[in-house]
Design a protein around this nucleic acid. Sequence first.
DNA 1: AAGATATGTCAACATGACTGACGTAAATTT
DNA 2: AAATTTACGTCAGTCATGTTGACATATCTT
Lengths: 183, 183
Amino acid sequence: MTDVNFSRGAANPDSQGAEGVPAPRSGELRWDIIELLFFAYRDFVGDADHELEAFGFGRAHHRVMHFVYRYPGLKVADLLDVLRITKQSLGRVLKQLLDEGYIVQKTGNNDRRQRLLYATPKGEALVAKLAGLQTDRITRALRDINPEGVAAISQFLRAMIDRDDPDKVLEAIFGTGSKKPRE
Amino acid sequence: MTDVNFSRGAANPDSQGAEGVPAPRSGELRWDIIELLFFAYRDFVGDADHELEAFGFGRAHHRVMHFVYRYPGLKVADLLDVLRITKQSLGRVLKQLLDEGYIVQKTGNNDRRQRLLYATPKGEALVAKLAGLQTDRITRALRDINPEGVAAISQFLRAMIDRDDPDKVLEAIFGTGSKKPRE
DNA sequence: AAGATATGTCAACATGACTGACGTAAATTT
DNA sequence: AAATTTACGTCAGTCATGTTGACATATCTT
């Protein structure tokens, strides 16, 4: 049906690049790292995804739980910065987590408009379980790598992150802010 | 309104873990790598996301284009394995890319039921542009890392990937298959 | 000829994003 | 004190991308 009427080669139509197209810079492109990142991240989040199904939650719930647990007293606005989603989108997920008792809100002391977020023990248990699964994978992957190698991995991942306009969590990770994560 | 009636502490309610909950294994959890992966991947795909908007495409289109370009002659079934989505979901995206001339199909030589997928020059240009953006970020991140460090990063990412039931693309990446990527 | 396989498609639905508009309480500015 | 801004919540509608289930068609295998 929709058979090819494009092929310039025979069995294996090889394209030779169109005019006006920017040079592919073939030799320089890091296809290797690009694809490794895709597959590594896919399987990394897959660990948690599978477990979350049992709770009727999705990735969105995990992300919220994770950062609320790690940075207790996070404001709603901070969370929006970190997750880079709209408040309407966060609202739905957050409401479920509040209703089901995974997170609690506490009115801010200085500014009573703020709703500071904290994980309940129930929430902590879930986050720890998911982090455990992901840690298992990471530990396995780091097993045969020496300390210099681990340092290089950490440095690489940090350097992959945008440093302009960092949110509170990133400030904590890069040690430029006042907020400190748990543990 | 929904003020806290849970807090056991004062200003900063610190939870001490519920009974019956598995031990948090706090000291061992790799919160650092977990969060670095989250932010690194977020910004990594963000590069492409931004550019894709100008084409009216999303991440799904990028993933399809990428693997079709890199592994020319990929079958539809292979693509489903790699992306781990259903054929209905792939169908919508693939149809758009075919209609708009980013990809072409060619009937298989041995098996005429198969539709082998190839990127057109238009498709190649898009993939190269996106890979260029991501390569820029990777190159920047690798700049101050020595060859041993780069090897450790590559080893780490490979070890993060599930090796049971590898698809054709993973076989190529791990050098256990016959198919070879471009470039 | 019968059955299995590769692909495509229709229909319905879920999740998690989005925009835009509006409301309320509390803080800040004038 | 009044006006404005801020932090948050919510209603309503839309879009992108995933899902399941059913079914059709062409082609290969037995």
